[in-house]
Design a protein around this nucleic acid. Sequence first.
DNA 1: ACTCGATTCAAACAGTTGTTTGAACTGCCC
DNA 2: GGGCAGTTCAAACAACTGTTTGAATCGAGT
Lengths: 220, 220
Amino acid sequence: MAKATSRGTSALSHRSAETRCKLLEAAGPIFAEKGLNGVTVREICGRAGVNIAAIHYHFGDKERLYIATVRYARERRAEQYPFPDWDAAVSEAERLHGFVETILRRMLEPDVPWQTRLLMREVLRPTEACRELVEDYFRPDFERLVEIVRALMPGRPSAREARQAALSVMGQCLLYRIAGEIVRQLVSEDEYEEAYTVESLTDHICRFSLAACRAWESAQ
Amino acid sequence: MAKATSRGTSALSHRSAETRCKLLEAAGPIFAEKGLNGVTVREICGRAGVNIAAIHYHFGDKERLYIATVRYARERRAEQYPFPDWDAAVSEAERLHGFVETILRRMLEPDVPWQTRLLMREVLRPTEACRELVEDYFRPDFERLVEIVRALMPGRPSAREARQAALSVMGQCLLYRIAGEIVRQLVSEDEYEEAYTVESLTDHICRFSLAACRAWESAQ
DNA sequence: ACTCGATTCAAACAGTTGTTTGAACTGCCC
DNA sequence: GGGCAGTTCAAACAACTGTTTGAATCGAGT
């Protein structure tokens, strides 16, 4: 199966790599939108312009193509929406603002790259070995948020308290990704279009969370 | 199709209603767990103990059975986990606590009835005409939360501000339903088992949200 | 020019899906 | 008992699924 021999490493295996790539690039957006079971191999191959049997030949079966697609998405995850690289002078409040805005953009922007959407889907629907995905895709961001939040809370909050406060921030962000349609219906359509942009959502979530963090001790 | 005529309204239509009910009761838990496309009609009919063709005869097709199941779930939604019926003496903070605890129980308790699970699934995956579902299943609770939160915020918060604060509370609750597995992994397994019960989650979310609401003006 | 492994391709396969059919059964009414 | 609408049933249907096959094609090495 696509074994590069001593001789033809140039053109033949080049074609192989090209087909693999075409499959991954075609499968990515479709998997990202409809998930493993919402897609047919014929749709993937059709859009990739390759034969149906190519999936079996290059990946074994549909599920291994899916896994390879997730891995591919993670490897060359578009380095869009990177977190700001703060210097020491930036206040914690500003860092929180930057963090929330970045997270919201990653989740809500309509033209977010399919790599991100696929990883998001995978993360929200813990199926198989996506534990490592959480480890190196989600945890770094989360730990970063924990530190920001911790610095915002007066006194010496325990690590556990800081983690829970960070989860409260994440929950507020996630809501609009998960239940965006319901939110749109609960507040009116007009108000949603006007007031539920990334910018104003960022403002609200930061304002809410900042108030909560700063007033932490007093609520004890 | 199951038309009750003038004469045989007793035994025949009784059998019809019984079969319909058996189908709904059998389909409900399976739909709630795996969704419309994750279930086969054979599995449903097998568990219901009726013939495959019964679905077509009584409901038309699989999708209309699904819709009927959702409606059925809504009609006789188990009145478990009702909101406390507060009298005037109860403080707003206590109301918030009761609200959050009820929502968390509805979402996190493992033995929540299938009716609730099915409605939750429907609400989280806005497919077809679940708009009315949001209207009479979700909105009443939401409006109730808005009022609680509004009363907690100093000054005279606008309706929009109150709605957004309420959404921040909902988001915190939803996180543990949607991303419970990831949360479990992010905080350690041990900490999760110990500190992420409904009770302590309620405490944290209320503490966080209370602080945020009460400090609202000052963050302006 | 020929060989030979790598790769592609059209076609078929085997299994499952939701749906439909037409006959058989049920129980009420005349 | 005969008629008859309502209901059940086993079987088949048609469409689609992921997978496999075996021959055809390609392209570098000799």
